[in-house]
């Protein structure tokens, strides 16, 4: 066990515990806090992979801006505790098998290719901002533009929903 591996397991455990707690918490604020833990743990994992810039941006954008907005909205609406229902029919017969299938798929992929991923040692490959931006605007320019288009669609969707409420 070397130090990076120990840090990896701590961060991974934090991320998983945060994600589970996000679902199980009854109060929206607690859920939001759990999500922040997940985001920060993910940023730590990026840092471990040598992607310093991505880690910092992860905390600034997700941990800072987006989650602050979540917390702000929850506080503003003064959302109370959630109500719990039993499994609906859709969840019982559609959701559970699908979730199990997804877990199985991921586990199989990890078992099969886990070694290859672990051997992939790329310290500092993504650290440089100019390398990252060159990649973003040349190799991955179409996925990048498509993502921004997706976000635009989401914003417009939110606007449409808000307008419908008003009229």
């Amino acid at each position: 066990m070397n130090a990076p591996l120990i840090i990896f397991f701590v961060l991974a455990a934090l991320a998983v515990i945060g994600a589970i707690s996000l679902i199980l918490q009854k109060h929206p604020i607690h859920s939001a806090l759990s999500l922040i833990v997940v985001m920060v743990a993910l940023a730590g994992l990026y840092l471990l992979m040598g992607a310093e810039f991505v880690a910092a941006v992860q905390i600034i954008v997700y941990g800072g801006a987006i989650m602050v907005l979540f917390v702000f909205v929850i506080m503003l609406l003064n959302a109370g505790e959630e109500e719990r229902t039993d499994f609906s029919k859709l969840a019982k017969f559609g959701g559970l098998p699908l979730a199990l299938a997804l877990t199985g798929l991921l586990a199989a992929a990890m078992v099969r290719h886990g070694g290859a991923v672990q051997n992939q040692n790329v310290p500092g490959a993504l650290a440089d901002t100019s390398t990252l931006s060159t990649m973003l605007f040349t190799t991955f320019v179409y996925p990048f533009e498509l993502t921004s288009f997706l976000i635009l669609v989401a914003i417009m969707g939110a606007l449409v929903l808000a307008q419908r409420e008003k009229s």
Binding site: I36, A43, A56, I59, I60, G63, G64, A65, V68
Partner: peptide, 9 residues
């Protein structure tokens, strides 16, 4: 960036 990340939190 780390300073800004900490400020953001």
């Amino acid at each position: 960036l780390i300073l800004f990340a900490v400020t953001a939190l």
